[in-house]
Measured scan of single mutants.
Amino acid sequence: QVALSRTQVCGILREELFQGDAFHQSDTHIFIIMGASGDLAKKKIYPTIWWLFRDGLLPENTFIVGYARSRLTVADIRKQSEPFFKATPEEKLKLEDFFARNSYVAGQYDDAASYQRLNSHMNALHLGSQANRLFYLALPPTVYEAVTKNIHESCMSQIGWNRIIVEKPFGRDLQSSDRLSNHISSLFREDQIYRIDHYLGKEMVQNLMVLRFANRIFGPIWNRDNIACVILTFKEPFGTEGRGGYFDEFGIIRDVMQNHLLQMLCLVAMEKPASTNSDDVRDEKVKVLKCISEVQANNVVLGQYVGNPDGEGEATKGYLDDPTVPRGSTTATFAAVVLYVENERWDGVPFILRCGKALNERKAEVRLQFHDVAGDIFHQQCKRNELVIRVQPNEAVYTKMMTKKPGMFFNPEESELDLTYGNRYKNVKLPDAYERLILDVFCGSQMHFVRSDELREAWRIFTPLLHQIELEKPKPIPYIYGSRGPTEADELMKRVGFQYEGTYKWVNPHKL
């Protein structure tokens, strides 16, 4: 086992960053958080920038500027975001240094004079007029057009580079997404736009490419001749908990499936790229999406959770019991969808996408189930092999396979070949997804960000279904809070070829 401390991990990262040409360590950078008073800024962006600063992973002359409508001070920003920093008493001095680099400007999102004030403020910072500028839009999409237009007109660096990070949702359907994309691309070049999907920053999602293309053993079996089906799962054990009003506007397909799960599907299904260059990788992902037809209604199961009468606390409440959810809402909190990649490698292999709230566990994984062994000599005792990439929690890679049961006879039983990170790298604290992705933006690497043509294809696949749901308002199937979801989803999976045995229990190697 390799035991690495946080300091050692960050030392390795620093070495990698400083050796590259793309990370300008000594240049002045300004990180501007648009929507600095909001939840995302408070819980994710400010803490992430602090962790990067604490670990010495930001360029040395980096300033952080918050911008929002609320009249706040840096002290206010500190008060609301610091509880999420997880700072230790030993880091007190470092924390003071961090907040000394912070400033805040209040202004409207659609007022040109406010942006001119913001620009004057940035120019007044040390070497601010020639600094590289990175704008993070932690804002609702309704203000994107006004904000990007004003940034472009008043706040661009004339000497350094300018980059803009856009948070999902990128529209509600193909038409609104196209409108937003066309607007942003009329102001910024594609190499300046970073559409963030934080799932692409997760260690195991990034590991998929290495697993596939750096190991000879997987190449020959990664196709329709050997793989019976692919299941991509995202499960949350909690409901909307008072935030249903926002969720109800989008629903589970827009929230998770059309982005996170579809991105994971691309990494499983794509061909080997010409290189690890950002556009070479994204070219292959677009090719996969172009091979997927629009979702067919007979390959869809929609569910909505109801309270568990035997549960406790939140578990007793259904989705419609959330006071922020519109009365009688038919918005799905669970969806199972089957897609097919219609190309030579994957023809006929079902890709089953499942996601839901208020389920029995927290889990995100990719599961490849292989065909049955031909010419069975073990009297149907063999179960199908599976390769599982567990994204969260407890990152893991393992192969479910058959071995001989101890004893006199040739009785096979299920076991696993474990390729888990935790076994080799004991207690290594890896940077989280937002840390990686923000560092990628500083480096100018777009590999783990969504390109406009990729986004367009993703919406093309799901828009007809979303429009049909909005028009017909089908009643989702009720499922109990804390269950596996509607049984109809299991029946759909069985119908397209997935075999669920229920006889195997994964042993978490992190707890051995």
Rank of each mutant, 00 (worst) to 15 (best):
V391C: 15
W459H: 12
Q263P: 12
R484W: 12
D347Q: 15
E312F: 10
E342P: 04
I480F: 13
N423L: 04
D376Q: 13
Q468E: 09
T420F: 15
L419G: 03
W346M: 01
V341N: 00
R282H: 11
H467D: 13
D322V: 08
E491L: 08
K475N: 10
G502N: 14
G375A: 13
D279Y: 08
V388E: 04
Y425R: 14
N259V: 12
L471T: 13
Y319A: 00
G497R: 13
S452W: 06
S445V: 10
N308G: 07
F351W: 05
K357H: 11
A315M: 15
A332Y: 03
H371W: 04
V338T: 07
T420H: 10
G485L: 01
N259W: 15
V391L: 14
T403E: 07
L302D: 01
L417E: 07
P464K: 09
N259I: 14
G375R: 12
M408T: 14
E414K: 11
V338D: 02
L339S: 03
K400Q: 13
E284I: 01
P486C: 05
T420R: 08
P478L: 05
Q304V: 04
S275L: 04
L492E: 02
D255I: 06
L261H: 04
P431I: 12
P273K: 00
N277Y: 07
D283K: 05
E501D: 10
S483N: 04
D279L: 06
D280L: 05
V286R: 11
E454M: 10
Q381I: 11
A374T: 12
G303F: 01
D283I: 03
T333C: 02
G375K: 14
V288Y: 01
Q392Y: 11
L302T: 05
L455V: 01
D376T: 14
Y421K: 05
G311K: 11
E491A: 06
N411E: 10
Q304D: 01
N343L: 01
W346A: 00
Y504F: 15
N360A: 09
T420L: 14
P464S: 07
R354C: 11
T399P: 03
H260I: 15
F334L: 04
L320S: 11
G311P: 08
L359I: 05
R456L: 10
N343I: 02
S275G: 07
Q499A: 13
I377K: 03
Y481A: 14
E395H: 11
D279Q: 13
A269K: 01
A396N: 15
C443Q: 03
K287T: 06
A315H: 12
N385H: 13
R436Q: 15
K285G: 08
C443Y: 08
E491I: 05
S445N: 10
W506A: 15
Y340L: 04
S483A: 10
H510G: 13
M264H: 10
Y305S: 00
K317Y: 09
M408Y: 05
V450M: 15
G422C: 08
R424D: 06
Q380K: 12
V349T: 03
G307H: 08
L262V: 11
V325E: 03
K473T: 05
Q296Y: 04
E457I: 02
L466E: 06
S483G: 10
G375S: 15
P476C: 06
S452D: 08
H467W: 09
I477W: 12
L267H: 13
E271N: 08
D310M: 06
T403F: 14
N299V: 05
R327A: 11
D418C: 03
K290L: 03
L387V: 14
K473E: 13
E413I: 06
L302W: 05
V349Q: 01
T463K: 05
A433N: 14
K426W: 12
H510K: 10
F449H: 04
K473A: 05
L492Y: 03
G444I: 01
L302R: 05
L492R: 01
L455E: 06
V281C: 12
R451K: 03
I352S: 00
E312W: 12
L261I: 10
G318C: 10
D283R: 06
R362I: 12
G328F: 08
G482R: 04
F378W: 09
L455Y: 03
H371Y: 10
N308L: 09
N299I: 03
Y340N: 12
V341K: 01
K383H: 14
V507A: 12
L471P: 04
R424A: 14
V301Y: 03
L339I: 10
D418M: 08
E435M: 12
L439W: 07
N394Q: 15
Q446K: 11
A274V: 07
E284C: 10
N343C: 06
Y500I: 14
K400P: 05
C382Y: 08
S452G: 11
E491N: 10
T420W: 15
V338A: 11
A364C: 08
G485I: 01
H448D: 15
P486Q: 01
V325Q: 04
N299S: 12
I377D: 04
D453T: 02
E342R: 06
D440T: 03
D376R: 09
Q296K: 11
Q392D: 14
G303V: 02
E361M: 11
L417Q: 15
E365T: 07
N394P: 06
R451A: 06
P476I: 06
Q381H: 08
A374L: 09
Y500D: 15
L262H: 00
L261W: 02
Y319T: 00
K383E: 14
L289F: 05
Q499P: 15
L492H: 03
R354M: 10
R384W: 08
N423C: 12
K404E: 14
S415T: 09
R327F: 13
I377N: 03
M401P: 03
G497E: 14
L439R: 06
E501T: 05
K511F: 12
D280F: 06
I469E: 06
D453M: 09
G497S: 15
L302A: 03
I292G: 01
K317Q: 10
R390S: 15
Q263W: 11
K287Y: 03
T463P: 01
A336V: 08
K494P: 06
P273L: 01
K272G: 07
V441R: 00
K285H: 12
M264V: 14
I480R: 12
W459N: 13
R436I: 05
P431W: 07
P486S: 03
I469R: 04
M264I: 11
T399S: 09
I477E: 03
V268P: 01
Y481E: 02
Y398L: 13
T487G: 04
N299H: 14
G485T: 00
L339P: 01
F334H: 04
Y421Q: 15
E271G: 06
K287W: 03
V391D: 14
R424G: 12
R436Y: 09
W346E: 02
D347M: 06
L387D: 01
D347N: 14
N508D: 10
E472D: 09
F410A: 06
S452M: 06
P474E: 11
A364H: 11
V281W: 14
F370R: 00
L387Y: 04
L419N: 03
L289D: 01
F351H: 00
K475A: 08
K287L: 04
P350M: 00
F498E: 15
I352M: 06
D280G: 04
H379D: 15
L359G: 01
Y319H: 03
G502Q: 14
L267A: 14
T331S: 13
D347H: 14
R354G: 02
P326G: 10
